[in-house]
Measured scan of single mutants.
Amino acid sequence: MAAGGDHGSPDSYRSPLASRYASPEMCFVFSDRYKFRTWRQLWLWLAEAEQTLGLPITDEQIQEMKSNLENIDFKMAAEEEKRLRHDVMAHVHTFGHCCPKAAGIIHLGATSCYVGDNTDLIILRNALDLLLPKLARVISRLADFAKERASLPTLGFTHFQPAQLTTVGKRCCLWIQDLCMDLQNLKRVRDDLRFRGVKGTTGTQASFLQLFEGDDHKVEQLDKMVTEKAGFKRAFIITGQTYTRKVDIEVLSVLASLGASVHKICTDIRLLANLKEMEEPFEKQQIGSSAMPYKRNPMRSERCCSLARHLMTLVMDPLQTASVQWFERTLDDSANRRICLAEAFLTADTILNTLQNISEGLVVYPKVIERRIRQELPFMATENIIMAMVKAGGSRQDCHEKIRVLSQQAASVVKQEGGDNDLIERIQVDAYFSPIHSQLDHLLDPSSFTGRASQQVQRFLEEEVYPLLKPYESVMKVKAELCL
């Protein structure tokens, strides 16, 4: 049975990233139509530049190519590739079939990587351009969430054990800070992308030097003109047959890092959902379990974690691919890159769409948070109580021993009897502590235990987050809708 299948058929496997999760716009960027249309555009740009620099290419040939950029006979191309065992030459023939007058000058002087690699770089750039505003929107939604809850005390956790208090907004800023680093890295790697350009079979530009009869300047002009037509500021000066596969490492490393950030955020949300302090959106008709109707599973956060793990592992592909590119190139890269580049971007696209949807509907339960604080705060307040007693004339050592005994009794009630923490009640009825009984409410005010959390939130948002989001103001209103 021949390899390949009808990918629109229910009898043929289709990647869930495309069929179930990723956005239509990201799927289109990695589609065959987008790819092969870009090949034709690159052939047109090459012909236009070659004509401008004096090669015998007519206006009629150029116009014929322009008129057929979208006229792609995919069936013919597939048949040609089956016959020739070469995808680029299959599309040269297919393009030439609908451009008979231009057929002889299509791909003039070029090698397969002229269309293959340059198209990949265009796709990487455009895919990054799709991700950047999506990530900015996630940051914006979380920034709104953090600002609104900047002063809401909550129990902090280290080692997932109760620690000092923080605020809900401050905790959210930990998430935002990681995503801001990801946004900066995505922008950097996007701006650092260079075009492969017009380089020939081993990167020496020998074929173009021959076409222009040894004119170095025209060869350099050709490279520059096509690079500018493709919208790049610069091209690699040095290439082998391909652009260095280190570029793929750079791009997928940034995406993998984004995956790590999203995994951490969504894990926190899942843990908070278990504590009943916070939940992701839950639709009115949504079913959490087929057997347990009360369940409210954090399905979206779980999906993000599941896909983020996949995204983090994909960076190993370009690392290994770059390491086995012998001399000017081997074909070890080809099949692998067809999979890992598309999957990385479709996965990143999915987790950003999902995280935006989550961040637009996060639900906080202040009463649950308050109750958990009441359970733990008495123990945390013991040092403040000791200091207040010393100020009232008591002995630190005597007070410490009193607190120690009462704390152990209260802990026994919590752990052995399943009761509430009654340390404060014990202190309130103990005559030894009568000098500070009137101060206990103040000493137990949760806001006095959150330090500068709310001020940190305000400063972080104003100095770091809002300036970073400013270039994306025009796209901030787009909502994230999930079908599944």
Score class of each variant (00 low, 15 high):
M389D: 10
L108E: 09
D129K: 14
L468C: 15
L331G: 04
A342S: 04
D248W: 14
P56Q: 12
D178L: 02
D332W: 15
V390F: 15
V262S: 09
R426T: 00
G54K: 12
L255F: 14
K134T: 08
L444Y: 10
L362N: 03
A206C: 07
K402V: 09
W45H: 01
F212L: 07
K170T: 07
K199W: 07
I57F: 12
H217C: 12
A381R: 05
R303M: 07
S301M: 15
L130D: 03
R14T: 13
D32R: 08
S67P: 05
C399P: 09
F282R: 02
V168N: 07
C113P: 03
E370Y: 02
T382F: 15
Q416S: 15
H93M: 05
V324Q: 14
R171G: 10
A143K: 04
G5A: 10
F157G: 01
S253D: 07
V475Q: 10
K35W: 10
R190D: 13
S334M: 14
R190Y: 06
V475R: 10
E417D: 09
C399W: 07
D223K: 00
V226H: 15
W43S: 04
Y21I: 04
C180Q: 12
A110Q: 02
K82R: 04
T38D: 03
Q184V: 09
V115M: 01
L341K: 15
L258N: 11
K35V: 01
K276T: 08
K66N: 03
V315G: 08
D182M: 08
T313D: 11
S23H: 08
R303L: 13
S412F: 14
F345A: 08
N71L: 09
L193Q: 10
L307R: 01
T330S: 11
Q177C: 03
M181A: 04
E417H: 13
T94V: 11
L443E: 02
R452H: 14
S301I: 08
T38V: 05
N126T: 06
E464W: 15
V363C: 15
K233I: 03
G288A: 05
A22H: 15
L193P: 08
V254A: 06
V219G: 03
E81Y: 03
F195A: 06
C98P: 01
E48I: 11
W45V: 07
R125N: 14
P298G: 06
Y432H: 09
S323Y: 12
A49T: 09
D215I: 11
L252A: 13
S112R: 06
V368S: 11
A256W: 05
R303F: 07
L255Q: 11
R194V: 08
C340T: 00
L128E: 12
A273Q: 00
T321S: 05
I105Q: 03
K470W: 08
M387L: 03
F433D: 12
F449D: 14
Q375R: 10
G361F: 13
T58A: 03
C266T: 00
G231H: 13
L222A: 13
I436E: 09
D178E: 03
R270C: 02
A308Y: 09
Q210D: 05
T350R: 09
G231P: 04
G394W: 14
P16Q: 03
G240T: 10
I403A: 03
K170H: 03
R33N: 06
Q416R: 12
A322M: 12
D445L: 05
T202H: 02
R404N: 12
P16G: 15
C180L: 07
K477G: 08
C483D: 14
W43F: 07
A110S: 07
I436G: 11
L211R: 06
R245H: 00
A260G: 11
Q416V: 08
R234Q: 00
A392W: 08
F449I: 01
Y294V: 09
V368W: 08
K284T: 06
L44I: 10
R33E: 06
E60Q: 06
A453D: 10
F95V: 13
C305T: 11
H217E: 02
H310W: 11
G419R: 01
V363R: 10
L183R: 04
V368P: 01
D192N: 06
M181T: 09
H159M: 01
G240W: 02
